[in-house]
Amino acid sequence: MTIELQQVSKRYGSLTALRAATVRFADHKIYGLLGNNGAGKSTMLNLIAGRIFPDAGSIRIDGRPNTEDAALGRLFLMGEKNLFPDEMNIARALRWAERLFPGFDLAYARELAEAFELPVNRKKIKGLSTGYGSIFRIVLTLASRAPHLLFDEPVLGLDAQHRDLFYRLLLAHYAETPCTIILSTHLIAEVSGVIEHAVILRQGQILVDQPREALPAGSREPLASMLAQEGADLQNYFIKLMEEGAKNE
């Protein structure tokens, strides 16, 4: 029950987005996929979800290549973009999610939407604000009940209250339905109290792939203090790592 990337590379023209990345996301863990803008985080998640193809290497989900429906049906990626048809409204999207993704928990989705104050009505998805667009995709991802949940910049456009709610609901979901969670973000301090394992990317290369506790000053901060920047230890370590990398070039 893992997601495995073997020597995966991806180029966009002259830019190497991911360079021979080998990483294994084990079952029942919360991973932080950390890195600056352009580090290759979104590329890695899109590659795992089969939305783009690698130039080299292989990706397997629970032992199956990610070019199969059966493999892709075991994960749900909350991407940065809205991939829903222009005319689709929230209520219809949730109804169809239940049919298109077996295991999707419609009642839980409605519960989550209520918690986030997202109206489940005929409002079009494309008409949602950036924040509510993110919330809608968070609701879908959590309610998918997939064994592997991938979040790409999940708190984009969310206010402090909704961000706090997201992390609380994520941990509650994880406690209730153990699964693999990959959180891709550049907001290091915010997620330092949530993640169990950090994968740090820089210019398409994996710099660090270690449990949170193994990192310097690796104590997990309580959730309540997380937003008060008390999880800055990991952020400081990250900044130092980036600076060292820049010096070595």
Binding site: A49, G50, R51, T67, E68, D69, L72, G73, R74, L75, F76, L77, L83, F84, P85, M88, A97, L100, F101, L140
Partner: peptide, 16 residues
């Protein structure tokens, strides 16, 4: 195009 984008959200491959 609409289906490629929409159904990829639910893990359907291009073949499907």
């Amino acid at each position: 195009r609409e289906d490629l984008r929409h159904f990829s959200q639910y893990g359907l491959t291009r073949r499907s």
